[in-house]
Design a protein around this nucleic acid. Sequence first.
DNA 1: CGGAAACCTCACGTTGACGTAAACTATGCC
DNA 2: GGCATAGTTTACGTCAACGTGAGGTTTCCG
Lengths: 151, 151
Amino acid sequence: MSHRDAGSVQLRIGEAAELTEVSTRTLRWYEEIGLLTPAGHSAGGARRYSEDDLRRIVHIRELQLLVGIDLGGIGDILHGEDVLDDLGQEYRAGADLVRQREILLEARSVNERLRGVVAARQELLTTMMHGLDEQAARCAELLAGLDGGAV
Amino acid sequence: MSHRDAGSVQLRIGEAAELTEVSTRTLRWYEEIGLLTPAGHSAGGARRYSEDDLRRIVHIRELQLLVGIDLGGIGDILHGEDVLDDLGQEYRAGADLVRQREILLEARSVNERLRGVVAARQELLTTMMHGLDEQAARCAELLAGLDGGAV
DNA sequence: CGGAAACCTCACGTTGACGTAAACTATGCC
DNA sequence: GGCATAGTTTACGTCAACGTGAGGTTTCCG
């Protein structure tokens, strides 16, 4: 009983929502489309979120808002990551090796696709930043001309 | 007659759409919300797009898909850039200096805001890429274990 | 100088990602 | 054990950013 935060923090949906700065509706929506299943439930059926869940929520938001992937694509990515994590766990348990290899290859291809997307984003952001630098320079130049040159 | 591509290419909306890989509906939509007014019109009223227009379309798409700004925010940014370009043109014509300064300051603030957004995106993409690197490393390690260690 | 292909303007439909209201139930503290 | 607070499902509403006809005009090529 050490590989998963089994008996650790069990947050209610409102707490999880506040900590991750999303709405409760959004958390239920993520669950509805299969992105995030809360770690557990109370006796009465209320959702209970773990710290892992919180990290996953933040991760989802990053992919969505920063990388600009839609929730469907995020589902694919998370699935690849889940597979990788599970393999890490099952590794010592020596499951079907052929299957393990198969899954690892798929996870690697998902990883490579995502790296490609992120790399492209980085590149374009860099060129865009250069453009902004030039614009700022022109702006400063014109301002200096107004202040100094024509008093 | 040298500062603007006045008599240059005059593309029809379908051509502009194909070259920039957006739909004609999207181009009309950008016009409707004030993001992009085509350089001219035919006698019968059909839109004619210039090369500058094409560049602007690509720019809009970059801001939208890569930086993740909504079309309203893109309007603000483009306005700032337009103002800066216009000032560059009118600079020698010596317009109202006070007004020029006012406009320049606003353009600079828009520029700074955008730089902040882009910088934040860059930073988070970098950390995300690090995570992907680690994941890829783990993946490669496990694969090596499968291939080499257990034959 | 036809006529097909591309364009025009409405105007309603769609999709993703939630917001919001209703009607009911569970939780947790005094 | 009551009761305010927070949770539950169900279902309709919303907003941006277009998609998709309908019905009519323009362009352009043979």
